[in-house]
């Protein structure tokens, strides 16, 4: 699809989130809620005693019953529908021919680890902090956006073999 048209659809989804729910889009928060509920299931005492987890663990309510979790489930469904329409549903490891599959998977794992760690610190990722933040003119959104892209450009040379 033309990227400017895709941008308008994405912008409509963001505007709908603002109009209906008074908030922006998010993604890393979904990963966080999944992690919190796993910790709660494995070690409820640890979750209740920690000053961090206890912010997200209400007494009776399941942390997965949140706006962000339902939005992320929708994200999976929407991506699947689009992939089905455009004939892109396929199990595969996408990588540059210059690197092995195991190297690709290792770096994907490390990338996810860094990204979500940073997103917790900055209180949002590309979606929740940068994209949604910019749409509400939040200074935090603009600063986070510049930091993410500036840093990725600064590190790009070191990881070029993985991509080009």
């Amino acid at each position: 699809m033309n990227p400017y048209l895709a941008g308008c659809i994405l912008g409509s989804a963001l505007l709908a989130a603002m109009y209906f729910s008074g908030r922006g889009l998010g993604a890393s928060g979904g990963v966080k809620y999944a992690m919190v509920s796993a910790v709660k299931a494995i070690s409820p005492e640890h979750a209740e005693n920690s000053p961090y987890y206890s912010q997200y663990v209400e007494k009776e309510r399941n942390p997965l019953k949140s706006w962000l979790v339902f939005e992320v489930v929708g994200l999976l469904v929407g991506g699947f529908i689009s992939g089905a329409i455009s004939g892109r549903l396929k199990f595969k490891i996408e990588r540059s021919p210059n690197i092995s599959s195991s190297r690709r998977l290792l770096f994907a794992f490390l990338g996810g680890l860094f990204f979500v760690y940073g997103a917790q610190l900055a209180r949002g990722c590309t979606s929740g902090a940068a994209l949604s933040g910019m749409a509400v003119l939040s200074t935090a959104g603009f600063v986070t956006m510049v930091a993410i892209f500036g840093s990725a450009y600064a590190f790009a040379w070191f990881f070029r073999k993985n991509w080009i």
Binding site: F114, I148, A152
Partner: peptide, 17 residues
Amino acid sequence: GGVIMGAGFIMGGFCPG
């Protein structure tokens, strides 16, 4: 946080969304 995310972006090729 943004700088850590940028490093993750170039390593992993994705952002969470």
